[in-house]
Amino acid sequence: MTRRTTALSAAVALAAALALTGCSSSDSKPDLEVSGAFMPQPVMDMAGGFLTIKNDSGTADKLTSVTSPLSDDITMHETKNQKMQQVKSFDIPANGELSLTRGGSHIMFMELKKTPKQGEKVSIELHFEKSDPIKVDVPVEAPNHNPQQH
């Protein structure tokens, strides 16, 4: 009886170890890349931020917050039915992308500590549910800049 219990315990331990190893290799971190970032030159003490986050992995993630020396009050907003509302996070789908655009979802910088001018760059850090933070130097563009309009 003891020999059978020992063999069973060893088999269970081996199966658990294999299962854990399998989980960690298939549950890889998302592979995120930021592009197209810009901030229109603010005309008041607030500014919008826009960018695209591409996820080239099979693991979804979430953008959970944004930090910057420019403001201590940075929020994320989505626009639905022409109404802007604050959200706690944005989904970044597996093998997909999150697009923050004028007239759509975006980052809001409130109570700016200084007013950045066109041609300058604003340092931000994006924070995620699963991925490591990503630092981005965001170019400040003309107040009416909109790359989606041709």
Score class of each variant (00 low, 15 high):
9 S>N: 14
111 E>T: 13
128 F>N: 09
80 K>W: 06
10 A>E: 07
103 G>W: 05
3 R>I: 09
16 A>C: 13
106 H>D: 08
95 N>M: 15
24 S>P: 00
109 F>T: 08
137 D>I: 01
45 D>C: 03
25 S>F: 15
1 M>P: 03
145 H>I: 03
144 N>Y: 02
133 P>S: 11
101 T>W: 00
68 S>E: 08
45 D>A: 08
113 K>M: 00
108 M>L: 15
120 E>D: 15
47 A>F: 10
100 L>W: 02
129 E>Y: 15
31 D>E: 11
68 S>H: 10
94 A>C: 03
70 L>C: 10
71 S>K: 07
109 F>E: 02
131 S>G: 05
146 N>L: 13
20 L>E: 06
41 Q>T: 09
118 Q>R: 15
43 V>T: 10
88 K>R: 13
16 A>E: 02
35 S>Y: 04
37 A>C: 12
79 T>E: 14
22 G>C: 10
5 T>S: 10
145 H>R: 03
95 N>Q: 15
47 A>C: 05
17 A>L: 03
41 Q>G: 05
107 I>W: 07
106 H>N: 12
36 G>A: 05
47 A>N: 06
70 L>I: 15
77 H>E: 11
107 I>F: 05
107 I>Y: 02
59 T>Y: 03
93 P>G: 03
39 M>S: 10
76 M>E: 05
149 Q>I: 14
23 C>K: 02
60 A>S: 15
29 K>M: 11
46 M>H: 06
26 S>V: 15
149 Q>C: 03
105 S>L: 01
126 L>T: 04
130 K>S: 12
17 A>F: 05
44 M>C: 00
90 F>Q: 01
